[in-house]
Structures are given as C-alpha cells and as structure tokens.
C-alpha cells in the first residue's frame, strides 16, 4: 500500500500541493484527475521521488520513502513524451533497469534477454526489439516505455499523462491495453490525466484534484453520482450551473426551479446534468423553457433551451418519445435530480 500524508510542495511562491493525503491499495488502478495546474503531476512526481515535499510523508507499505531518491524506490515511471533512450534499441531500453543493477541483484544475460522477450510479448511488440525508438510510432513508443517501466518489477507503476501525446484512436486502444496489462500483472498503478473520460473509463478509483488539494476520491460512479463539492460536480461530467436561493426544499434561480430536498435554506449553487432533465408530462412538476436548438446524436436528442428570463439550459433527452420536438417549441423541463451546495 502506498500512503501519502499531508504533502505540501511549492515552486517558488506558487503552491502546487496544499496538504494532500491519499492511500492507494495494493493492485489498485488509480487516476489522478484535475485541470492543469491542479498539482496532479507534482503529486505523481513526489510519489516517484522526482520531487521532494516540504512537508508530509510518503510511505511504501511501512517504509518511509519521503526523502528516498527515485533510484531507491523501485517505481516504474512512464512519461507523456515517452522519454525512451533514443540511442538504444527497444530491447536495450527495456533491459536498462536490469542492466544497471549491480552484483548479485543483476540477472544474467540470458535471463535479461528472456525477460525482454516476455515484456515485448506483453505489450504486443514481438519482433521489434532491434528497432530504434525513432523507427516506431507514438503508440508503439509508449508501449516500449510501459515495458521498460514494468521490466524492473516495480512496486508501483506511475504514468504521467501517458496518452497525452497520442491521437484519439491510438489513445483509446492503448487505454484498453493499459487496463489489460494492469489486470495481467496486478501491479499497483497510478496515472495522471486531465481527460475525465479516460479516468472514468480506466480507473478503479479516481482522485480529483483542484488547486493543490484533493476534492474527492472514489469509484468512477461515485464521483459522478455523488460529487461532494461544486468543483467536482462541474468538472466531472456535463452540468448546467445555477446560482440562486434554497427555500423549503426547493432551489430557485429566476424561472429555474429545482428539487433540493434536505438542503439548508439560503444562498446556494446548483447543478443539473443534461441527461437528468426530462420533458414533464401529465402536469408533473417542472419549469417552462423554449427549445432554441435541437440536434440528434445517436439515441440522444441534444436540446439547447432558454427560460423566459433568459437562462440557457442544456438537456439530453432520449429520442424515443420526443420525436416531435423542434426548435422554437415550448417545453416544460422536469429535473430528475439536482446537486445543490450552499454558496
């Protein structure tokens, strides 16, 4: 298990991490998700031993690793720009972590060669061991980087925006690969991303960072369905945001009325997800709006609506049952649920 406790780290006057604590279970696949500047990469580098915190502790099981160098930690690190050794063949790249071992810890030549073969097979690059990095595509290079990091049998695999430099198709297939490789090796894995789809699709748990603190840690479904803060609610998944008042279990912002059962009275900020809005039928509760733009996307009808007092709302309806809806039509929107936070 990896534990980071109350980590603080700043670059000059700019604070990057403001007391971050996190536990990563053995064999877990965890995503650090956040906008740029949220401190997610710094946290990853602190765990790797490439940066050192001003305060706090980093523990690998019971070992205090806070000030251990990267070389002592036994981590595998994968960089966004691959960082392959450009003058070495793919095979020598993968073997590097074993080659640099000293004395009895260093495996024999034949052992290293068979380990390299095994890893090439794992990342599905059989037969490419003699190539140089500049003879490979971006996706292949990142596979080599992954194999190189796994070769040493790391206690934890750390990936910094591993798919950031790849195009959309390769990104998607490599994402599946990473999950497969993680499941095959069982290695504890932490990866950094700013792409929520990537994090929600791939990870067992997602830690959402903002301005150097962790806002929420939880399973993908949890952070989507039970966001603990306005930031998480607005950052994960699409959401309409309103500022208004809660009174008697109802949130009001002009013409917009949302259910807020149990919310304390007073100023509040509320979010509604587009897919959690429906068209009210048979006199159900809701509020009036006019459809301004209607677009079909597969099974979904994307509707941009506007209330009488000019607030814009995005809604996503199932196409079935809303076939007749056209731009300009009057609607009654019924929110299935809203996320309301005191302002």
């Amino acid at each position: 298990m990896i534990t980071v406790h109350e980590i603080e780290k700043s670059f000059g006057r700019y604070p990057a991490l403001n007391g971050v604590s996190l536990e990563i279970a053995e064999g877990e696949l965890l995503a650090l998700l956040g906008p740029s500047g949220s401190g997610k990469t710094t946290l990853l580098r602190v765990i790797a031993g490439l940066e050192f915190p001003e305060k706090g502790r980093v523990m690998f099981d019971d070992e205090d690793m806070t000030f251990a160098g990267a070389a002592q930690r036994g981590v595998g690190f994968v960089f966004q720009q691959y960082a392959l050794f450009r003058h070495m063949t793919v095979a020598r790249n993968i073997a590097f972590g074993l080659d640099v071992r000293k004395g009895r810890a260093k495996p024999g030549k034949a052992q290293i060669a068979s380990r390299v073969e095994e890893l090439l097979n794992l990342v599905e690059l059989d037969g490419l061991g003699k190539r140089f990095p500049n003879q490979l595509s971006g996706g292949q290079r990142q596979r080599v980087a992954l194999a190189r990091a796994l070769a040493v049998g790391p206690r934890v695999l750390l990936l910094d925006e591993p798919f950031g430099a790849l195009d959309a198709t390769v990104r998607k297939s490599l994402r599946k690969e990473l999950r497969r490789i993680h499941d095959a090796t069982g290695v504890t894995t932490i990866f950094v991303t700013h792409d929520q789809e990537e994090a929600l699709d791939l990870a067992d748990r997602v830690a959402i960072l903002n301005l150097g603190v962790i806002e929420q840690v939880g399973a993908p479904q949890e952070v989507q369905d039970a966001p603990v803060s306005p930031f998480v609610c607005g950052f994960v998944g699409a959401a309409n945001r309103f500022e208004g008042q809660v009174a008697g279990g109802r949130f009001r912002a002009g013409d917009v009325v949302l259910p807020a059962p149990g919310a304390a009275d007073g100023a509040a900020v509320a979010f509604v997800r587009p897919h959690e809005l429906t068209v009210a039928v048979n006199g159900a509760e809701g509020f009036a709006a006019t459809a301004r733009r209607v677009a079909t996307q597969g099974p979904v009808l994307q509707v941009e609506a506007v209330t009488a007092d000019g607030q814009a709302i995005e809604a996503a309806f199932a196409r079935q049952g809303t076939e007749g809806l056209r731009a300009g039509a009057a609607l009654k929107l019924a929110p299935l649920r809203a996320y309301v936070y005191p302002a």
């Binding site: 490439l50 990267a70 036994g74 690190f77 960089f79 720009q81 640099v100």
Partner: peptide, 25 residues
C-alpha cells in the same frame, strides 16, 4: 531531463545515468 529522470527511476546512479544516457545523446 525526461531521459535522465527515466534512467534514475529505473535505478541508475547519477554517474551511470550520465554515461549511459546523457553522454550518448
């Protein structure tokens, strides 16, 4: 510094990193 950082994270010493990674580059 990516390649140097990669080498260090794979367990290479500073000197080894210089000779195996920096110098050839």
């Amino acid at each position: 510094v990516d390649e140097e950082e990669a080498a260090v994270s794979l367990g290479a010493s500073g000197l080894r990193t210089f000779w195996s990674v920096t110098a050839p580059n």
